[in-house]
């Protein structure tokens, strides 16, 4: 079946559903995901981390911050590896900055956890900060073209071909995880140095005028590899990655046996990233 006909049938089907059940259509509008993978999220008050999807995978990650403290330079190594394999440009200024993953201070990654007095070491810890791949992503809800969407494995992905660069997703993301290509990432600075030092020939770059962010290494997962940052941190055991919906996965095991926190859980985004502080 050609894609046009398939799309038509899909739209026709969805319209029919919307017509029959107005409440369900309204629900779809509110939820922002026509094909939500899971059931309803448990209320934050119960201390649940997120909604458990009934079917399908939901990739997630546990970030053990202490392990990063024990291994100085590890966070930087993760960032460097990610940015080099994904052809992330370095413009050398904050205004144009593009980053998929970065080391942030505790008070900025967790601004709602500010305290009068806290552990002295905390402020110096590098907290690995990246897209939360939320189960209820506000960016997906906001995108007017479905250029950003949640795929069947729970990864919030981007289609750079479709993005119109309205930056609504950037306003919607409560985690500052998204970057915009304010200028041509393939360009050169005034000294003639390219913004992307060394191109990875197997991965594309982006173009001017689109939004980009961490893709949970969807291209590596497809060929049976784990995300690049997880691979870098594997010897230190600082990052654990896997399917949150599989009760026997390493990441589920880790979540059962440790106390973890999430960023801004009160916003109902159900992040798939968990931090052990």
């Amino acid at each position: 079946m050609d894609s046009k006909r398939r799309n038509f049938l899909k739209i026709a089907g969805l319209s029919a559903i919307a017509g029959i059940g107005a409440p369900s259509a309204f629900n779809m509008l509110l939820k922002g995901e026509a094909l939500a993978s899971g059931g309803h999220g448990a209320p934050a008050a119960q201390g649940e981390h997120g909604a458990a999807a009934v079917t399908g995978k939901r990739y997630g990650m546990v970030i053990d911050v202490k392990k990063f403290a024990d291994n100085p330079g590890l966070a930087e190594q993760c960032v460097k590896t990610c940015h080099s394999i994904h052809n992330v440009p370095d413009f050398g200024n904050r205004k144009d900055e593009i980053k998929w993953v970065w080391a942030e201070k505790f008070q900025h990654t967790f601004p709602e956890h500010s305290q009068y007095k806290k552990n002295d070491g905390l402020n110096e810890l590098p907290i690995l900060t990246l897209c939360n791949h939320c189960d209820k992503p506000p960016c997906v809800r906001a995108c007017p073209t479905k250029a950003t969407f949640k795929n069947k494995d729970g990864i919030v992905a981007m289609d750079y071909h479709r993005c119109i660069g309205c930056r609504f997703c950037m306003a919607a993301c409560p985690y500052g995880a998204r970057s915009f290509n304010w200028r041509d990432p393939r360009g050169k600075d005034e000294n003639g140095n390219p913004f992307i030092k060394e191109l990875n020939p197997t991965f594309p770059t982006r173009m001017r005028g689109v939004v980009e962010k961490c893709n949970f290494c969807v291209e590596r997962l497809a060929i049976g590899q784990i995300p690049a940052c997880v691979e870098v941190a594997s010897s230190a055991g600082a990052l654990v990655f896997g399917d949150l919906n599989d009760p026997n996965s390493e990441v589920s095991e880790k979540l059962r046996s440790s106390f973890t926190i999430q960023r801004k859980p009160a916003l109902g985004t159900h992040p798939s990233l968990f931090y052990i502080i």
Partner: peptide, 13 residues
């Protein structure tokens, strides 16, 4: 505009 993002073999070398 494929090549605004995608890399052609020569470029990539």
């Amino acid at each position: 505009y494929c090549w605004d993002c995608h890399l052609q073999p020569k470029e990539a070398m």
